[in-house]
């Protein structure tokens, strides 16, 4: 009988796999670019994880898939990333509050009760504003590596204003800031502000609990985190590995399935 449980989160940019043991403790995790087929990537990562642990398929009691690619993955069950995110955060922090998740393609605000029950949530409109993709395009326009945005933005002296939400128009705004001589740091600070303002406005849809956890790949960006703290007027808690919390939630759901059956 298997005693490990796997959560697979196939996002638009990154695929995350988390394995927990029978006590729900984190046993292993890995991430990779989703690329063309997130499903194949997820399967490869899972196989590698198992191999590293010296385990086989038989040791996996159940798998739950989440994220955009969840429907294609051969899991025991698929659960939306909102529910998984809430579960993952509740398991790590235990308390009720608000989760702000900014991923590659969308951003979400999730209001949760103790135990991880979702009370309400809001997601971005059908555009890239306020998402990782927005940051990626702006980084491209400034010829900055995506992972350097945060540190650079923190060095800003003044914040350039990026008023357009449309990624295409914002990009041309960035370019016109460049041509008017603004520093990359100041422009990037403006870019981070733009993402933060957009996401902060979503919190008024759900209501904001002062205990806010910031997750998703963008949570590693210090510039956005700082801008978001300013926009919300409260400090953020950022998990050590902010991108894997939804996959962790999925793994915990996998464990529930098994309990239900057992």
């Amino acid at each position: 009988m298997g005693q490990y449980y796997i959560g697979v989160d196939i996002g638009s940019l990154t695929t995350k796999v988390v394995m927990v043991d029978g006590d729900g403790k984190l046993a292993a995790r890995a991430t990779g670019r989703s690329g063309y087929s997130g499903k194949d990537v997820a399967e490869r990562i899972t196989a590698r994880l198992l191999e590293e642990k010296g385990l086989g398929q038989k040791d996996v009691a159940a798998t739950v898939a989440t994220g955009y690619g969840r429907v294609t993955y051969p899991a025991d069950r698929e659960v939306s990333e909102i529910t998984c995110q809430a579960r993952g955060i509740a398991s790590q922090f235990g308390s009720a509050g608000t989760v702000i998740d900014i991923g590659g393609q969308d951003s979400k605000v999730i209001k949760i009760l103790k135990g991880g029950k979702v009370v309400d949530f809001a997601m971005n409109d059908k555009c890239a504003a306020g998402t990782g993709r927005f940051l990626e395009v702006m980084a491209g326009a400034l010829e900055v590596r995506l992972e350097d945005i945060g540190d650079l933005a923190l060095q800003a002296r003044g914040h350039c204003q990026i008023s357009s939400f449309c990624t295409v128009f914002a990009e041309s705004e960035v370019i016109s800031h460049v041509s008017s001589g603004a520093s990359k740091a100041d422009i990037l600070a403006g870019v981070c502000d733009s993402v933060a303002v957009r996401v902060a406005s979503m919190t008024s849809r759900t209501g904001l609990d002062p205990e806010v956890v910031f997750t998703g790949g963008v949570a590693r960006n210090k510039g956005v985190a700082a801008a978001l703290e300013k926009a919300l007027g409260c400090p953020l808690t950022i998990p050590e590995e902010p991108e894997i919390t939804a996959a962790l939630g999925a793994a915990l759901f996998a464990r529930d399935i098994n309990k239900g059956q057992g």
Partner: peptide, 14 residues
Amino acid sequence: RNRVQAFLETLGGI
């Protein structure tokens, strides 16, 4: 689909 699924999960359990 994403929103609907999450919503129904909050209502009906997983």
